[in-house]
Amino acid sequence: MGIIELNSVSYEYNTGKETAFFALNNVSLSIQPGEFLCIVGHNGSGKSTLAKLLNGLLLPTSGTVLVKGMDTKDEKRALDIRKTVGLCFQNPDNQIVTTIVEDDVAFAPENLGIDPKEIRTRVNMALKAVGMESYATAAPHMLSGGQKQRVAIAGLLAMQPEVLVLDEATSMLDPAGKAEVIKIIQRLNSEGITIVMITQYMEEAIIADRVVVMSQGSIALEGTPKQVFAQASALRSLRLDVPAVVDLRNRLIARGMLPTHALTAEELAEHIAKIIKTETGSLKEDTLRVNEDSASH
C-alpha cells in the first residue's frame, strides 16, 4: 500500500452555487514511500487542489484520501496527517509566519507541543539540511526568494515529515534559487523522504521517478519521464511543452536520426557522438558501454 492513497477523489468548488465546478474528477493515485513523484499540469488543471487534498487542507467531495491509512476526513487525526505530509507553497513570502528565521522554523514543533530542547535540536537540524544555518537570526524579508523558500522547507522538516509536497514551490524563484531548492529536495529524497513535486514545467520532471500529467481535473498521462516525454504531441495538446533538447531530439528523429530516449543535453550529445563514431569506424570500447542504455531503444 502507498504512503498516500487517493481513491476516486473528486473535489467541487462552490458546491450548490451557479459557479460550481469540479476541480478534480475521479482521481485515483497511489504514492509509494520513498519515491520522487512529479505532478505536471498547466494553470487550472487541478494540481494545486490535489496538493491541498494530500494533507487534509481540503477534504474530498467524494472518494477518500488515506495518509498512512489515516482518512483525512477523520478530524482527530488532522495533526498526525499534517505532520506526516509537509506542504510547501508557491509564494515563500506568504508562508513565513514570524520575523526571525529560527523562530519561524520552530513554529510547527511549537504547535505540536514539543519540548523546548527538542525543538532547538530540530530547528538546528532543519536549518542545516537546507543550508541556512548561518541565517538563523536573520529577518526573512531581507532574504532572497530561494533562501526564503529554503526556510519554508526547513519549517516543514522540523515536523519530521515523511512526505514533502511542493506546490509550484520553485515557480517564483530565479534560476539560481530554483537550482538550490531542487538540489535540496533531491538530497532529502535520497535520505528517504517521499517527494511530490507539483510544477508547470516539464523540464523539472526529468529528475522524477514517475510523472503524472494532469489535465482538466483528471490524470491524462502517467509513467517514467522517458515514457511521458516520448509523447510530445500529446503533451503539447495539454498546454505543456517539452524541453528544448527533447524538442530538438524529436525533430532529428523525424528527419531520420536513430531513435533515442535521451532527455538531457548530455544524453543527446552522447547518442549523436556514438552514431558519428560508429559511422567513422572509430568507436571506442568505453563509449559503447556507456551507451548500452540508449542503444537498446
Binding site: 498547466h42 494553470n43 515557480s171 508547470q200 514545467y201 505543456l240 511543452d241
Partner: peptide, 8 residues
C-alpha cells in the same frame, strides 16, 4: 513572463 505556464 514570470510565473506563467509554458504556453502563457
Amino acid at each position: 513572463m514570470a510565473g506563467l505556464d509554458p504556453l502563457g
